[in-house]
Design a binder for these strands. Structure first.
Lengths: 237, 237
DNA sequence: TGCAACAAAAGTGCATGCACTTTATCTGAG
DNA sequence: CTCAGATAAAGTGCATGCACTTTTGTTGCA
């Protein structure tokens, strides 16, 4: 029988299936800030009941990817401009920490793995889908995972997804936010360089990413205004 | 009638009520790592069904305060020694960031507020309940809130609770982990000092807290063992 | 006494139902 | 045509029920 009562050992349950799918869709900008996420549509799409979908949305809300308001449909979170800036500030201190742990300690295998990701990034560079963006995030998450510190990994992963969402809110469509060459330089700096220098380079990289997206957005106020006003529309209280 | 169909504007719903209660109980060490959290008992205690209790446990698990394993009863999370160390490492970089934002920028009102908390801490110093511990955490959370940065506040608050849980796992009963005088010095350093000096002081403070609890635990391996074994023991008291 | 195997009890996993709220659609007056 | 109000449709909030799993006793046997 295909249908088992309890998921097998490695088998993904529908709960994490929903979470993963939405996270990825957000990262790849298939889902945009403000997009609606009705519970039953979600559940039906994944062969689960509303109960599961609702629970998944709760988890995603805890990660800051989804907005939940009582009696209202869940939506993809719409970070404000200030939120975006704060997310990147936080991301910088967390990823500096990652780099400090890793500097001068990467194994050959790890270097290879990172280079392979950047390679793939380069290959996906000119596709219209979100693959390049996803791979860029994968690079940063892979770095975090190499620290072997579960708590650090978890927070970096989360902030990377939130940063991806923030970029989705403020950078132009189809712009690939991370420059491939910067990632290559980063690998080299972490492999060879002193910790502080590598950390500075990570900070510069992330600051560049933030600037490219956020500065251009602060020019075009219209975008920001839309975002600020969205939650208030139709609710005088 | 007293019973409304929908909670009034400011009224706390039972979901966040459960979350708050458990968070606080963990912080005050009324709940210890490994303690069981059956859904129906929880729900009944707060006049809600299992659905709500289950959802609350999911939220707390996302915050790292609760362990969830399929088909098993939820338990208060039992961080390993390595987890505890990682949590404090992360807490240090986050709270350094808080202090950097705040240094030289505290209003008189804010200084007063912080001093009042430390005052209360001092008063609760010799009580056997967890009030002193809770107030110590409140001090750190209050600092974070003064940055006005929602994302930073959220992460600092979460890491503070996780740190409280880690201390609960590894420090002796009734030890108040934060020295009151250190908090007073911290206020002064943030009020007057240059950002880096204040940040260093925060780091030293947190490192001291971690050391007091974690070093004594790494000496006495038995303590760690107790914690590992706790979930398997029946409830002796 | 020690310890399997088994049976009852307690607990989780999840869908479904119903009351209530929000959102969308329709209607008619200005 | 526009827009307020009414009404239908869609969606959420939450309890409950039932199948399944884990845990806890309990009994039988060495």
């Amino acid at each position: 029988m295909a249908a088992k009562k309890t998921p097998a050992r490695g088998e993904a349950d529908r709960l994490s299936l929903i979470c993963k799918a939405i996270r990825r869709a957000i990262l790849e900008r298939a889902l945009l800030p403000g997009d609606r996420l009705p519970e039953d549509a979600l559940g039906e799409r994944f062969g689960a009941s509303r109960t599961i979908a609702r629970y998944a949305l709760g988890q995603l809300a805890a990660e800051g990817l989804v907005d939940l308001r009582r009696n209202r449909m869940a939506t993809v979170a719409a970070p404000s401009f200030a939120d975006a800036r704060d997310i990147f500030d936080l991301r910088i201190v967390l990823e500096r920490q990652v780099v400090r742990h890793l500097a001068g300690k990467l194994s050959d295998r790890e270097v290879k793995h990172l280079q392979a990701i950047v390679e793939a990034e380069h290959a996906a560079r000119h596709g219209a889908d979100g693959t390049a963006i996803r791979l860029a995030t994968e690079f940063h998450v892979a770095l975090a995972e190499m620290t072997g510190k579960p708590i650090l990994i978890r927070y970096v992963t989360e902030i990377c997804y939130r940063a991806g969402l923030a970029l989705s809110a403020f950078s132009r469509p189809h712009s690939s936010d991370c420059a491939v060459s910067e990632h290559l330089d980063l690998i080299e700096a972490i492999r060879t360089g002193p910790a502080d220098k590598a950390a500075d380079m990570m900070e510069a990289h992330l600051e560049a990413v933030a600037s490219r997206a956020l500065l251009q957005a602060s020019d075009a106020r219209g975008r920001d205004l839309m975002n600020i006003l969205a939650p208030y529309a139709g609710d005088p209280g």
